[in-house]
Amino acid sequence: MGKLKRSIVVTSGKGGVGKTTITANVGTALALLNYQVVLVDADVGLRNLDLILGLENRIVFDLSDVIENRCRSYKQALIKDKRVGNLFLLPAPQTKQKEDIPLDKFKELIEEIKQEFDFVIIDCPAGIEHGFKMSAKAAEEAIVVTTPDLSSIRDADRVIANLEAMGKNSTKLIINRMKKHMVKKSQMLSIEDILETLNIELLGIIPDDEYITISTNNGEPVVLNKTKPLYKYFNNIANRLVDPSIPIENPFNEGNIFQKFASLVGLKKTKY
């Protein structure tokens, strides 16, 4: 079977909204669906992805070793996940600055890796500076993560504008940390409010669940255990990346909201 050769950046603008958590879990879910997946930690100097995947003590080479030719090929730096055979991590250097990685070298590397895999998913650092530009320019597709609060949404909006300026017009949105009780009491921005502002296609919704913290601390992505809460949301996102016609797993099953989604998602296609 031919490789899908897709490169996707997971970005947000605002920090701490769940980029790394989503990269780890959606990546693992894709690997469990039998795709060949490489997760690239582009958060140079503040790496986390290795921890969430529980691979921190297996790092020998990192991104800058590859870029600066200290190892034979990028393959030498990939860490293979023991639990899921076809999942790999390319870790970020911890002792470097973001600016130490040249934009074009990073893009070339991602292009090279992509040829031999189905998915290369880049965990982007917060902000819109060098690390963001590097990650966004290297990837063909983008996923923007936001939480349902105004500051996160405004930052996501800014990032989407930057992505559009780079010619990326099919960016998809993940809304993370939706809180059930707050949605019910309409104390929180609704999904419709968020989509009205950001006006891009919705890829998925992930509820807020404190179990994530436990799983992160254990270095074990929640998707490895089907009985865990949140499994189905990450799995749904992985499936929808391959087949967008699969319906969105809605944590708040409020019947007709779906129809509204449809119309809002459809908005994107109306070229004014």
Binding site: R154, D155, D157, R158, A161, N162, Y272
Partner: peptide, 22 residues
């Protein structure tokens, strides 16, 4: 979108939203 500035000598008609931060 946020962070964008649309500027003109002319009257501006926006058919769409002006987002927070724009």
């Amino acid at each position: 979108r946020s962070g964008s500035l649309l500027e003109s000598e002319k009257t501006i008609l926006v058919v769409g939203n002006v987002n927070s931060g724009a």
